[in-house]
Design a protein around this nucleic acid. Structure first.
Length: 266
DNA sequence: CCTTAGTCCTGCATGC
DNA sequence: TGCATGCAGGACTAAG
């Protein structure tokens, strides 16, 4: 599942190829993959230059010098220039450009979304800050008095943008915090550890081009490498890398949650 | 304010 | 082998 590091890797791959090119059209093969009518969206983007490409949270963003086009890959989405024959039947939308070959949204589970934002619209409203430095994370955690489990809070995109299930579990393990700890109950040391470790883990995952578990691959079909660094995610029953205790799996906020019951005491 | 459950979807794993 | 069932997951919405 693409989270912040995977989306960062995708954008880094696309940026040199698309920046400066112009939009031609958007085409849908599954109507829900695009918010709005494809002819109407095409009319609004046709001929527009891609000024900048960047990532915000888990969103891929194309700055069309005014309007923004965003792509969220959700569970199984991928952006590919040359879909393989096997991927052909999972193409849900295509972006067409003046110079570059068309870019396909391959998305078996149909959860990915493409959306156009007008220049006068608030772009990605309510999205929290990107947690790539300790101070940003510390500030986001500082004012929290919530009784919600810290795991749920880390997944709340309004608090911090870009953390998904994998990196939430890995960060809590690294900070030695039980995922069910009420966010407001974290002490100063725990908040400091979490604030330090979240950016470190995300940056290390970016360096390794993300985590490939099932279907994530970048636009050049390359695997990520962070799956070899996972300490708890999908490691239920395996010995903890620190203490040897078997990793537990529970459900928190309808999400599978993995932790070491010895290293991460309540 | 909060939490929980339901929705969207398909591929894959499991069990008989 | 084939069929039924269940599960995973991000973001959103509705209900309590």
């Amino acid at each position: 599942m693409p989270e912040l590091p995977e989306v960062e890797t995708v954008v880094a791959g696309l940026r040199p190829r698309l920046t400066g090119d112009r939009m031609r059209s958007v085409e849908t093969l599954w109507h829900r993959s695009l918010c709005g009518d494809p002819r109407e969206v095409t009319r609004r983007i046709r001929g527009r230059r891609i000024g900048k490409m960047f990532r915000r949270g888990k969103y891929i963003c194309l700055d069309l010098e005014g309007p923004h086009l965003t792509i969220h890959l959700r569970m199984s989405g991928r952006l590919v220039f040359n879909p393989s024959p096997a991927e052909e039947r999972h193409i849900r939308a295509r972006l067409h450009f003046h110079e570059s070959p068309c870019l396909a949204l391959v998305d078996p589970r149909k959860f990915g979304r493409i959306r156009l934002w007008d220049s006068d619209e608030t772009f990605l409203p309510g999205l929290g800050p990107d947690p790539l430095d300790a101070k940003t994370v510390a500030d986001a955690l500082a004012g929290l008095t919530s009784r919600r489990p810290i795991k749920t809070v880390l997944l709340d995109q309004k608090v911090l943008a870009g953390i998904g299930n994998i990196y939430a579990d890995e960060a809590l393990f690294s900070a030695r915090i039980h995922p069910l700890t009420p966010a407001g109950d974290l002490d100063e040391n725990q908040r400091a550890r979490l604030s330090a470790t979240v950016p470190l883990i995300l940056k290390e995952a970016i360096r390794r081009r993300g985590t490939t578990l099932n279907d994530y691959r970048d636009p050049d079909n390359r695997d990520g490498g962070f799956q070899h660094q996972l300490k708890v995610y999908q490691c239920a029953g395996k010995p903890c890398s620190v203490c040897g205790t078997p990793i537990s799996r529970i459900v928190v906020g309808q999400r599978g949650t993995h932790f070491c019951p010895r290293c991460q005491k309540k």
